[in-house]
C-alpha cells in the first residue's frame, strides 16, 4: 500500500525514493513531505529505514530511484557539505562531536559555511581573519548560551557528560542558523529533565524553523510533533497527527511486531 498524505508545497520532500544496499531493499517508494514551520516526526521500528531517509535527504546515500525536492526544486548531485549553505542542518545519531576540539570549537565548526577567510589569509593571520573569528565566536557563544552550555566552552567532549555533549552537538547544528533542522534521535541517551528541556526547545524553534526528527522515544514524538510519518520495512505505513497515528492499527501492528523481536 502506498500512503500519500495530501500536502501542498512541502518545504522538503522525498518523491518515490527507493534505496537498495547490498541486495536489500532499504527504502521502497518512500514519499515523505516536511511542511514548512512545523515539527514533523519520522518513526518506525528498528530497521525501518528512517536514518536512510535522512541520508538520502542529506546526500550521503544516492537513491536508486526517486528524487529529493527542497523549496520545490529537485536536488541533484548534492553533497552533504552543501546542506548548511542551503539552510539545512543535520545532527547525527549519538553525538558525533570532534574529540580533539573544544566544545566551543566544535560549535564554531558548524558555522563553516559562513566563514569567508581563505587559507592564504589565515596562513598570514590577516586582521580580518581575527575579526571574522570573533564574530563567529560570538554567534557560537550565543547559541551555546541558548542551550545552557556556554560554561563548557573550553572543555573537550570527553570531559562532558553525555546529555551535555548532545546539547553541544545541537548547538553545532544550530549555529549555521538553519531553516530546516534534521534531528537524528535527539532524545537518545538523555534523562527525563533534559527531555523536557528538549521538548521546550524544539517547540520554541517553530514556526521560524522547520524540524524533522527521527526518534524512538514515543512520548517526545507525541508531545512535540505536529505531523508524524511512520515507516516499516522501508515503506510508509501511516501518516497524520499524533492522535491519528496513535490509533492507527497498522502502526500498532508494526510496533507490536517490533516488541516481539
Amino acid at each position: 500500500m502506498k500512503y500519500v498524505l495530501p500536502l501542498t508545497h512541502p518545504l522538503l520532500q522525498t518523491v518515490d525514493v527507493s534505496v537498495k544496499l547490498s541486495g536489500l531493499q532499504i527504502l521502497d517508494n518512500v514519499s515523505i513531505g516536511v511542511p514548512e514551520g512545523v515539527v514533523t516526526g519520522l518513526i518506525g521500528p528498528n530497521g525501518a529505514g528512517k536514518t536512510t531517509v535522512f541520508n538520502v535527504m542529506s546526500g550521503f546515500v544516492k537513491p536508486d530511484a526517486g528524487v529529493v525536492r527542497y523549496e520545490g526544486r529537485r536536488l541533484e548531485h548534492i553533497h552533504p557539505h552543501h546542506l548548511t549553505r542551503m539552510g539545512i542542518s543535520r545532527t547525527l545519531q549519538g553525538v558525533g562531536l570532534f574529540p580533539s576540539l573544544t566544545a566551543l570549537d566544535n560549535v564554531m565548526m558548524g558555522a563553516s559555511s559562513k566563514a569567508r577567510a581563505g587559507i592564504v589569509a589565515q596562513a598570514l593571520a590577516m586582521p580580518w581573519v581575527d575579526r571574522e573569528r570573533s564574530r563567529l565566536r560570538e554567534q557560537a557563544i550565543a547559541v551555546m548560551t541558548e542551550l545552557g552550555v556556554e560554561g563548557e566552552a573550553d572543555r573537550f567532549p570527553s570531559e562532558l557528560p553525555y546529555p551535555i555533549q548532545k546539547r553541544v552537538a545541537l548547538a553545532r547544528a544550530l549555529v549555521s542558523d538553519p531553516k530546516v533542522l534534521l534531528m537524528d534521535e535527539p532524545a537518545g541517551g538523555i534523562g527525563a529533565a533534559d527531555m523536557k528541556d528538549l521538548e521546550r526547545l524544539i517547540r520554541s524553534w517553530v514556526p521560524e524553523r522547520t524540524v524533522l526528527l527521527v526518534e524512538h522515544h514515543m512520548e517526545l514524538v507525541m508531545e512535540v510533533c505536529d505531523l508524524i510519518w511512520v515507516l516499516d520495512a522501508g515503506k510508509v505505513i501511516a501518516a497524520g497527527t499524533p492522535e491519528q497515528v496513535r490509533n492507527d492499527p497498522a502502526v500498532l501492528a508494526a510496533y507490536l511486531g517490533d516488541e516481539g523481536a
Binding site: 542529506s58 553533497h79 552533504p80 557539505h81 547525527l92 570532534f98 576540539l101 549555521s176
Partner: peptide, 14 residues
C-alpha cells in the same frame, strides 16, 4: 582536525 576526527560530522558541519 575535524575532518581527521570524523569526516561525516565534518561534512554535515558544512
Amino acid at each position: 582536525q575535524a575532518v581527521r576526527d570524523d569526516s561525516i560530522a565534518a561534512a554535515v558541519s558544512g
